[in-house]
Protein backbone atom coordinates (compact mmCIF):
# COMPACT_ATOMS: atom_id res chain seq x y z
CA UNK A 1 0.00 0.00 0.00
CA UNK A 2 1.25 3.41 -0.90
CA UNK A 3 0.28 4.79 2.49
CA UNK A 4 2.58 2.38 4.21
CA UNK A 5 5.28 3.01 1.69
CA UNK A 6 5.30 6.73 2.35
CA UNK A 7 5.19 6.42 6.11
CA UNK A 8 8.04 3.93 6.27
CA UNK A 9 11.15 5.22 8.03
CA UNK A 10 13.89 6.51 5.80
CA UNK A 11 16.48 3.79 6.16
CA UNK A 12 13.83 1.30 5.19
CA UNK A 13 13.77 2.27 1.54
CA UNK A 14 17.44 1.55 1.08
CA UNK A 15 17.07 -1.70 2.96
CA UNK A 16 14.07 -2.67 0.85
CA UNK A 17 15.95 -1.92 -2.34
CA UNK A 18 18.86 -4.07 -1.22
CA UNK A 19 16.52 -6.93 -0.41
CA UNK A 20 14.71 -6.46 -3.70
CA UNK A 21 17.95 -6.54 -5.64
CA UNK A 22 18.98 -9.74 -3.89
CA UNK A 23 15.59 -11.32 -4.47
CA UNK A 24 15.52 -10.43 -8.15
CA UNK A 25 19.02 -11.84 -8.63
CA UNK A 26 18.03 -15.11 -7.00
CA UNK A 27 14.84 -15.28 -9.06
CA UNK A 28 16.74 -14.67 -12.29
CA UNK A 29 19.16 -17.45 -11.51
CA UNK A 30 16.29 -19.79 -10.76
CA UNK A 31 14.52 -18.78 -13.94
CA UNK A 32 17.67 -19.35 -15.98
CA UNK A 33 18.11 -22.82 -14.52
CA UNK A 34 14.54 -23.84 -15.13
CA UNK A 35 14.57 -22.52 -18.69
CA UNK A 36 17.93 -23.69 -19.91
CA UNK A 37 18.64 -26.50 -17.51
CA UNK A 38 22.12 -27.69 -16.72
CA UNK A 39 23.07 -29.35 -19.95
CA UNK A 40 24.78 -26.90 -22.24
CA UNK A 41 22.42 -27.88 -25.06
CA UNK A 42 19.69 -25.69 -23.59
CA UNK A 43 21.88 -22.63 -23.88
CA UNK A 44 23.26 -23.76 -27.22
CA UNK A 45 19.87 -23.48 -28.88
CA UNK A 46 19.41 -19.92 -27.69
CA UNK A 47 22.43 -18.99 -29.77
CA UNK A 48 21.88 -21.44 -32.59
CA UNK A 49 18.36 -20.31 -33.43
CA UNK A 50 19.11 -16.87 -34.88
CA UNK A 51 22.16 -18.26 -36.66
CA UNK A 52 20.15 -21.03 -38.28
CA UNK A 53 17.53 -18.54 -39.36
CA UNK A 54 20.11 -16.18 -40.83
CA UNK A 55 21.71 -19.08 -42.64
CA UNK A 56 18.42 -20.24 -44.12
CA UNK A 57 17.48 -16.74 -45.23
CA UNK A 58 20.91 -16.23 -46.68
CA UNK A 59 20.55 -19.40 -48.70
CA UNK A 60 17.06 -18.52 -49.94
CA UNK A 61 17.96 -15.03 -51.05
CA UNK A 62 21.19 -16.05 -52.66
CA UNK A 63 19.44 -18.73 -54.68
CA UNK A 64 16.69 -16.36 -55.78
CA UNK A 65 19.20 -13.60 -56.47
CA UNK A 66 17.12 -10.98 -54.66
CA UNK A 67 19.56 -10.12 -51.94
CA UNK A 68 20.34 -6.61 -53.17
CA UNK A 69 17.17 -4.95 -51.95
CA UNK A 70 16.95 -1.42 -50.67
CA UNK A 71 20.63 -0.83 -50.37
CA UNK A 72 21.04 -2.83 -47.16
CA UNK A 73 22.10 -6.42 -46.90
CA UNK A 74 19.26 -8.80 -46.23
CA UNK A 75 21.21 -10.76 -43.63
CA UNK A 76 21.70 -7.93 -41.13
CA UNK A 77 18.15 -6.81 -41.75
CA UNK A 78 16.73 -10.24 -41.00
CA UNK A 79 18.97 -10.83 -37.99
CA UNK A 80 18.07 -7.50 -36.42
CA UNK A 81 14.35 -7.89 -37.08
CA UNK A 82 14.26 -11.48 -35.93
CA UNK A 83 16.07 -10.75 -32.66
CA UNK A 84 13.79 -7.85 -31.86
CA UNK A 85 10.68 -9.78 -32.83
CA UNK A 86 11.73 -12.73 -30.68
CA UNK A 87 12.18 -10.45 -27.68
CA UNK A 88 8.75 -8.93 -28.22
CA UNK A 89 7.02 -12.29 -28.63
CA UNK A 90 8.77 -13.84 -25.66
CA UNK A 91 7.96 -10.90 -23.44
CA UNK A 92 4.31 -11.38 -24.31
CA UNK A 93 4.19 -15.13 -23.94
CA UNK A 94 5.96 -15.24 -20.56
CA UNK A 95 3.25 -12.92 -19.25
CA UNK A 96 0.40 -15.27 -20.12
CA UNK A 97 -1.05 -16.65 -16.86
CA UNK A 98 2.07 -15.40 -15.10
CA UNK A 99 0.27 -15.29 -11.75
CA UNK A 100 -0.51 -18.98 -11.67
CA UNK A 101 2.99 -20.00 -12.58
CA UNK A 102 4.49 -17.59 -10.06
CA UNK A 103 2.18 -18.40 -7.17
CA UNK A 104 4.29 -21.04 -5.44
CA UNK A 105 7.15 -18.55 -5.17
CA UNK A 106 4.95 -16.14 -3.27
CA UNK A 107 5.23 -18.34 -0.18
CA UNK A 108 8.58 -16.67 0.27
CA UNK A 109 7.50 -13.55 2.01
CA UNK A 110 10.09 -11.22 0.57
CA UNK A 111 9.21 -12.25 -2.97
CA UNK A 112 6.55 -10.08 -4.50
CA UNK A 113 4.74 -10.65 -7.74
CA UNK A 114 6.45 -7.71 -9.37
CA UNK A 115 9.88 -9.07 -8.46
CA UNK A 116 9.03 -12.24 -10.34
CA UNK A 117 7.81 -10.35 -13.39
CA UNK A 118 10.88 -8.10 -13.39
CA UNK A 119 13.25 -11.05 -12.99
CA UNK A 120 11.65 -12.94 -15.86
CA UNK A 121 11.70 -9.97 -18.18
CA UNK A 122 15.30 -9.17 -17.31
CA UNK A 123 16.41 -12.72 -18.03
CA UNK A 124 14.48 -12.79 -21.30
CA UNK A 125 16.00 -9.50 -22.38
CA UNK A 126 19.49 -10.50 -21.36
CA UNK A 127 19.47 -13.90 -23.05
CA UNK A 128 17.94 -12.38 -26.18
CA UNK A 129 20.62 -9.75 -26.31
CA UNK A 130 23.35 -12.32 -25.78
CA UNK A 131 22.01 -14.45 -28.61
CA UNK A 132 21.91 -11.45 -30.94
CA UNK A 133 25.45 -10.44 -30.05
CA UNK A 134 26.82 -13.93 -30.61
CA UNK A 135 25.06 -14.29 -33.97
CA UNK A 136 26.19 -10.81 -34.94
CA UNK A 137 29.81 -11.49 -34.05
CA UNK A 138 29.92 -14.73 -35.98
CA UNK A 139 28.27 -13.23 -39.08
CA UNK A 140 30.49 -10.18 -38.80
CA UNK A 141 33.61 -12.33 -38.66
CA UNK A 142 32.54 -14.05 -41.86
CA UNK A 143 31.85 -10.72 -43.48
CA UNK A 144 28.07 -10.98 -43.82
CA UNK A 145 27.37 -7.98 -41.60
CA UNK A 146 29.31 -4.76 -41.42
CA UNK A 147 30.13 -3.19 -38.07
CA UNK A 148 27.31 -1.64 -36.02
CA UNK A 149 27.06 2.04 -36.77
CA UNK A 150 25.77 3.06 -33.38
CA UNK A 151 25.77 0.34 -30.70
CA UNK A 152 24.39 2.70 -28.09
CA UNK A 153 21.27 3.39 -30.11
CA UNK A 154 20.84 -0.36 -30.57
CA UNK A 155 21.25 -1.00 -26.86
CA UNK A 156 18.79 1.80 -26.16
CA UNK A 157 16.26 0.28 -28.54
CA UNK A 158 16.73 -3.10 -26.89
CA UNK A 159 16.17 -1.69 -23.40
CA UNK A 160 13.18 0.29 -24.58
CA UNK A 161 11.69 -2.84 -26.14
CA UNK A 162 12.25 -4.65 -22.86
CA UNK A 163 10.41 -1.94 -20.97
CA UNK A 164 7.63 -1.83 -23.55
CA UNK A 165 7.20 -5.60 -23.58
CA UNK A 166 7.28 -5.70 -19.80
CA UNK A 167 4.62 -3.04 -19.34
CA UNK A 168 2.43 -4.60 -22.02
CA UNK A 169 3.05 -7.92 -20.28
CA UNK A 170 1.55 -6.52 -17.07
CA UNK A 171 -1.72 -6.01 -18.90
CA UNK A 172 -1.49 -9.46 -20.49
CA UNK A 173 -0.73 -11.09 -17.12
CA UNK A 174 -3.68 -9.40 -15.45
CA UNK A 175 -6.20 -10.06 -18.21
CA UNK A 176 -5.25 -13.70 -18.77
CA UNK A 177 -5.67 -14.25 -15.04
CA UNK A 178 -9.02 -12.48 -14.79
CA UNK A 179 -10.45 -13.99 -17.98
CA UNK A 180 -8.79 -17.34 -18.49
CA UNK A 181 -9.86 -17.97 -22.11
CA UNK A 182 -8.03 -14.78 -23.08
CA UNK A 183 -4.82 -16.79 -22.86
CA UNK A 184 -5.78 -18.52 -26.11
CA UNK A 185 -6.08 -15.19 -27.89
CA UNK A 186 -2.58 -13.96 -27.20
CA UNK A 187 -0.74 -16.01 -29.83
CA UNK A 188 -3.25 -15.29 -32.62
CA UNK A 189 -3.15 -11.62 -31.66
CA UNK A 190 0.62 -11.56 -31.88
CA UNK A 191 0.37 -13.16 -35.30
CA UNK A 192 -2.28 -10.81 -36.63
CA UNK A 193 -0.40 -7.76 -35.42
CA UNK A 194 2.83 -8.83 -37.13
CA UNK A 195 2.41 -6.28 -39.97
CA UNK A 196 2.32 -3.39 -37.53
CA UNK A 197 5.44 -4.52 -35.66
CA UNK A 198 7.63 -3.14 -38.41
CA UNK A 199 9.66 -6.33 -38.51
CA UNK A 200 9.46 -6.75 -42.28
CA UNK A 201 10.02 -3.30 -43.68
CA UNK A 202 11.60 0.06 -43.10
CA UNK A 203 9.05 2.81 -42.88
CA UNK A 204 10.85 4.76 -45.61
CA UNK A 205 10.08 1.95 -48.08
CA UNK A 206 6.34 2.44 -47.68
CA UNK A 207 4.14 4.91 -49.56
CA UNK A 208 3.54 8.13 -47.63
CA UNK A 209 -0.05 7.42 -46.49
CA UNK A 210 0.98 4.02 -45.17
CA UNK A 211 3.92 5.61 -43.36
CA UNK A 212 1.57 7.82 -41.38
CA UNK A 213 -0.49 4.85 -40.33
CA UNK A 214 2.32 2.55 -39.20
CA UNK A 215 4.05 5.29 -37.23
CA UNK A 216 1.17 5.12 -34.77
CA UNK A 217 2.51 1.74 -33.72
CA UNK A 218 5.13 2.03 -30.94
CA UNK A 219 6.63 -1.26 -32.12
CA UNK A 220 7.48 0.26 -35.48
CA UNK A 221 9.46 2.94 -33.66
CA UNK A 222 11.38 0.30 -31.74
CA UNK A 223 12.29 -1.72 -34.83
CA UNK A 224 13.29 1.45 -36.68
CA UNK A 225 15.49 2.52 -33.83
CA UNK A 226 17.21 -0.84 -33.55
CA UNK A 227 17.95 -1.05 -37.26
CA UNK A 228 18.77 2.64 -37.34
CA UNK A 229 21.55 1.90 -34.89
CA UNK A 230 22.78 -1.01 -36.96
CA UNK A 231 22.79 0.67 -40.38
CA UNK A 232 23.29 4.29 -39.38
CA UNK A 233 23.26 6.72 -42.30
CA UNK A 234 22.99 3.87 -44.82
CA UNK A 235 19.30 3.71 -44.16
CA UNK A 236 16.61 6.27 -43.47
CA UNK A 237 15.11 5.45 -40.09
CA UNK A 238 12.77 7.46 -37.95
CA UNK A 239 11.71 6.95 -34.35
CA UNK A 240 10.63 8.75 -31.21
CA UNK A 241 11.73 7.54 -27.81
CA UNK A 242 9.26 9.71 -25.93
CA UNK A 243 6.37 8.34 -27.99
CA UNK A 244 7.28 4.77 -27.01
CA UNK A 245 7.84 5.82 -23.38
CA UNK A 246 4.37 7.33 -23.30
CA UNK A 247 2.95 3.96 -24.38
CA UNK A 248 4.99 2.22 -21.68
CA UNK A 249 3.67 4.51 -18.99
CA UNK A 250 0.19 4.04 -20.37
CA UNK A 251 0.40 0.26 -20.17
CA UNK A 252 1.86 0.47 -16.68
CA UNK A 253 -0.93 2.78 -15.58
CA UNK A 254 -3.47 0.20 -16.77
CA UNK A 255 -1.50 -2.94 -16.00
CA UNK A 256 -0.45 -2.34 -12.39
CA UNK A 257 -3.91 -1.63 -10.93
CA UNK A 258 -5.38 -4.40 -13.05
CA UNK A 259 -2.74 -6.79 -11.76
CA UNK A 260 -3.67 -5.87 -8.23
CA UNK A 261 -7.29 -6.74 -8.93
CA UNK A 262 -6.20 -10.00 -10.54
CA UNK A 263 -4.00 -10.88 -7.60
CA UNK A 264 -6.87 -10.22 -5.24
CA UNK A 265 -9.18 -12.54 -7.16
CA UNK A 266 -6.48 -15.13 -7.65
CA UNK A 267 -6.91 -18.56 -6.13
CA UNK A 268 -4.08 -21.03 -6.15
CA UNK A 269 -6.08 -24.15 -6.90
Amino acid sequence: MIRGFLSAPRGDLLHSLTVQGRVIRALMLRQALSRFGHDSLGIFWIFAEPLLLSGAVMLMWTISGLHKGHGVGIIPFVLASYSMLTLWRHMCSISVSALSSASSLLYHRNVRLLDILIARAALESFSGMASFVVAYLILHLFGFIRAMEDPLVMAGAWLLMTWFGWSFGLVVAAITELIEPAAHLVQPLLYVTLPITGAFYMVAWLPAPAQQVVMWSPLVHLFEMFRGGLFGAHLAADWSISYVAAWCFGFMAIGLPLLRVAQHRFSAH
Partner: peptide
Protein backbone atom coordinates in the same frame (compact mmCIF):
# COMPACT_ATOMS: atom_id res chain seq x y z
CA UNK B 1 9.21 1.25 -6.79
CA UNK B 2 5.83 2.73 -5.92
CA UNK B 3 4.07 0.19 -8.03
CA UNK B 4 5.84 -2.75 -6.50
CA UNK B 5 4.58 -1.62 -3.15
CA UNK B 6 1.10 -1.21 -4.50
CA UNK B 7 1.02 -4.81 -5.67
CA UNK B 8 3.08 -6.21 -2.83
CA UNK B 9 2.23 -6.71 0.79
CA UNK B 10 1.86 -4.09 3.45
CA UNK B 11 5.31 -3.00 4.56
CA UNK B 12 4.02 -1.14 7.63
Amino acid sequence: ATASNAVGRDPD
